[in-house]
Simulated scan of single mutants.
Amino acid sequence: MPKGVIVDEEAVMAGYADVRDDESETKFLMLTYQDENTKIGVSKSGADYSEVLTDLGGEEGESLRAYVYLRVVTGDEMSKRHKFVLLTWCGPSVPALKKAKMSLEKTLVKNLMRSFAVEIQASELEEMALDNIMDLVRKSGGANYGPGK
């Protein structure tokens, strides 16, 4: 375990379960570094993923490090299903040492959020766009048997 960084496991697991719950409207869980970079905790959760993009696209997003767990619906006309994505955001202004530490600290997050179809690491907002994410999820799913267009 990386020294000095803890994860607020109780809050993260509650948020993770909420995103995974088919009956819940919660579509995302966003974790950020808190308490002077000593804790990874829940920053926000909700039904509108555009809130995440707003946060990451703002001035603070330039130097923000975050993990986002996202539920999306994919499939074709014959079959719709939920898929989960783990996104790692490292803003373009994050210092090199913090970027390096993040690769180790991500294991703490992945130990809690184990179930996802696609993992994306991004430092540009375009990489976090929902269209980009859905393309990667579709590609990871294999064959698509819908009638096509």
Rank of each mutant, 00 (worst) to 15 (best):
residue 112 L to A: 10
residue 116 F to P: 01
residue 137 V to T: 04
residue 91 G to H: 04
residue 78 M to H: 07
residue 93 S to Q: 10
residue 45 S to F: 11
residue 67 Y to L: 05
residue 86 L to S: 03
residue 23 E to Q: 14
residue 80 K to S: 08
residue 90 C to V: 00
residue 48 D to H: 14
residue 135 D to H: 08
residue 119 E to T: 02
residue 36 E to N: 14
residue 61 G to Q: 08
residue 3 K to L: 06
residue 78 M to W: 06
residue 124 E to H: 15
residue 78 M to N: 08
residue 122 A to R: 02
residue 95 P to E: 08
residue 93 S to C: 07
residue 121 Q to Y: 07
residue 107 T to C: 05
residue 75 G to T: 01
residue 27 K to D: 08
residue 63 S to R: 09
residue 27 K to C: 08
residue 105 E to A: 03
residue 83 K to L: 04
residue 94 V to G: 00
residue 21 D to E: 14
residue 81 R to L: 14
residue 15 G to M: 07
residue 93 S to D: 08
residue 128 M to T: 06
residue 54 T to L: 11
residue 56 L to I: 00
residue 46 G to M: 15
residue 14 A to W: 11
residue 46 G to V: 15
residue 48 D to N: 12
residue 126 E to K: 15
residue 139 K to W: 06
residue 79 S to A: 12
residue 3 K to P: 00
residue 4 G to Q: 08
residue 38 T to D: 13
residue 141 G to Y: 08
residue 9 E to R: 00
residue 31 L to R: 01
residue 78 M to E: 06
residue 113 M to G: 01
residue 41 G to N: 11
residue 40 I to P: 03
residue 93 S to M: 07
residue 84 F to A: 01
residue 72 V to C: 07
residue 138 R to A: 10
residue 74 T to F: 07
residue 66 A to E: 05
residue 37 N to C: 10
residue 8 D to C: 06
residue 45 S to M: 14
residue 81 R to I: 13
residue 4 G to P: 04
residue 115 S to I: 09
residue 31 L to M: 11
residue 12 V to D: 00
residue 6 I to A: 09
residue 14 A to D: 12
residue 14 A to Q: 15
residue 93 S to I: 06
residue 85 V to I: 06
residue 67 Y to I: 00
residue 41 G to M: 11
residue 83 K to F: 09
residue 139 K to T: 10
residue 125 L to I: 11
residue 52 V to L: 01
residue 135 D to T: 09
residue 116 F to I: 09
residue 132 N to C: 14
residue 94 V to D: 04
residue 124 E to T: 13
residue 37 N to F: 07
residue 41 G to I: 08
residue 80 K to C: 06
residue 76 D to K: 04
residue 129 A to R: 05
residue 130 L to P: 02
residue 5 V to C: 04
residue 121 Q to K: 13
residue 75 G to V: 00
residue 125 L to R: 04
residue 77 E to I: 14
residue 98 K to V: 01
residue 13 M to T: 07
residue 134 M to T: 00
residue 109 V to Q: 00
residue 7 V to C: 05
residue 100 A to P: 09
residue 61 G to E: 07
residue 43 S to V: 13
residue 110 K to V: 00
residue 42 V to I: 15
residue 67 Y to A: 02
